[in-house]
């Protein structure tokens, strides 16, 4: 079995970039590292299966495990995005609060 890691990495980068949209530039470094790990693991599962060291069901189970790893990674990014939005919003609210209070010369907000 031929494993074209370069093409696979490029395809994964395109798919991730499309899925993440504007977020891509911020998470690029993170995902590229994770994609490399994912490709290495998939390659290893394929090789072990081809060489008969693991059976069909084990290979399937390890692949499902890899999907779960990806899901967990995306959930971490989702949570971190929420934290980033929360921090940005609170900073904006704080600046509005300060501006209003300064303009009114008493702490209204």
């Amino acid at each position: 079995m031929k494993f074209d890691k370069k093409a696979m990495r490029a395809n994964m980068r395109t798919a991730t970039r499309t899925a993440l949209g504007e977020q891509w530039s911020e998470v690029r470094e993170y995902f590229e590292a994770e994609n490399r790990k994912l490709i290495e693991t998939l390659k290893m599962i394929a090789l072990l299966h081809t060489s008969g060291k693991i059976d069909d069901l084990t290979a399937k189970s390890l692949l499902e495990g890899q999907v779960l790893v990806r899901e967990s990674l995306l959930l971490a990014v989702e949570g971190m995005t929420l934290i980033m939005v929360e921090t940005t919003l609170n900073a904006a609210l704080d600046s509005i609060r300060k501006a209003v209070n300064t303009a009114l010369k008493f702490p209204l907000l």
Binding site: K37, I54, L62, G65, S72, A76, G79
Partner: peptide, 27 residues
């Protein structure tokens, strides 16, 4: 399971635990 399969499973589980910790640290 053979050792190689256990090793892959172990790496997957550790990655998942790492992702939970990564998010928790960011909080």
């Amino acid at each position: 399971q053979p050792a190689v399969a256990i090793n892959i499973a172990q790496r997957q589980i550790n990655s998942m635990l790492g992702n939970i910790l990564k998010l928790e640290h960011n909080k």
